[in-house]
């Protein structure tokens, strides 16, 4: 009931503001984003509003805090060309993409903006692969830390904390893997898709008393979860190493993924794949600096699966 009244208050404020903005010839479209567009608002919420402006050197891209009928409005002024680049250029399921996709077009004076917004929900396989790799790579360091604190110190609380850190990227893997649009608040989405796993690694760790067995179970669940999905989430790394055939240094692999997919930090994923026996570990000669006169060995990886 309370939420309804807040929602109504916010909507009224928004309507008033949009009525004002609509007659501004330098604003082509208004897109409602954030909680008010797809979630429940509360008293401390604000309204996230993307205002697409005309392309003019006197109209710059900027953020503005507005005040409408007692409600704070976070207005993002984005010129049309930049808005177009943002919509088309953002990788599907990235934060920007998710932010815009969950939004609602309030009005537009330019029909091509409406067409553009209509394509936001489309999800592509290439982007999905990139985002899966990014999410899984993000999860791995936290999982490693959790294992380390469990094995070396037996600190259940700190181990659990690291597992919880890993829960968000793992939830992204779950949601993106299922072809859904991942929110910023992704764990509740993932819990609907894989309740058993997220109960073990998230709900139980938060709500139940932590025992060695429950933490070990969470770690095992995570290991099994990642291992089971490794060929899928790390597919592009395996593909790359299979294509090149011989060993490649970490720097070469990083460079490749940065140039080809605009993604960094894949060395962590390579180390994981090597631990799993999916790729082999090697080394290549390297120099630490441009002026080094000593040669060291740099970590390298090679494909060991079937061609």
């Amino acid at each position: 009931m309370v939420h309804d009244s807040i929602q109504q208050k916010f909507m009224a404020a928004l309507d008033t503001l949009v009525d004002q903005v609509k007659v501004d010839r330098s604003v082509l479209a208004a897109l409602l984003c954030g909680s008010l567009s797809h979630d429940i608002v509360w008293t401390k919420s604000d309204i996230d509003l993307v205002l697409v402006t005309v392309d003019d050197k006197k109209v710059e891209q900027s953020d503005l805090s507005l005040y409408a009928d007692g409600v704070s409005v976070h207005a993002m002024l984005i010129p049309r060309t930049e808005f177009r680049k943002m919509v088309e250029g953002s990788v599907r399921n990235s934060f920007t993409h998710s932010f815009l996709t969950k939004g609602r077009l309030l009005y537009t004076h330019d029909p091509t903006i409406a067409d553009l917004c209509a394509t936001l929900a489309d999800s592509g396989r290439r982007d999905k692969q990139v985002q899966l790799l990014r999410a899984a790579t993000h999860a791995l360091p936290a999982i490693d830390k959790a294992h380390k604190w469990f094995v070396t110190r037996g600190d259940l609380d700190y181990t659990a904390l690291w597992i919880l850190y890993a829960a968000t990227p793992l939830a992204q893997v779950e949601v993106i893997g299922a072809g859904r649009l991942a929110d910023r608040e992704v764990i509740p989405q993932a819990m609907l898709l894989n309740p058993a796993f997220f109960k073990t690694v998230y709900t139980d760790l938060l709500n139940a008393r932590k025992t060695r067995d429950s933490v070990q179970a969470a770690l095992d669940a995570i290991d099994g979860y990642v291992a089971g999905r490794a060929p899928m989430v790390f597919e592009s790394i395996l593909d790359h190493l299979r294509d090149v055939g011989e060993a490649r240094s970490c720097r070469e692999i990083e460079d490749h993924f940065k140039r080809n997919f605009d993604i960094g930090g894949v060395t962590t994923a390579c180390e994981y794949l090597a631990d799993q026996g999916l790729i082999g570990t090697a080394s290549t000669p390297a120099r630490l600096t441009k002026k080094s006169n000593v040669e060291v060995q740099e970590l390298a990886f090679f494909y060991i699966g079937p061609s």
Partner: peptide
């Protein structure tokens, strides 16, 4: 900022391809 390519006359979505 481009998502669509016309490859040899066919529209291709880069995010998917």
């Amino acid at each position: 900022g481009c998502r669509w390519l016309i490859v040899d006359g066919q529209a291709v979505d880069i995010s998917a391809e």
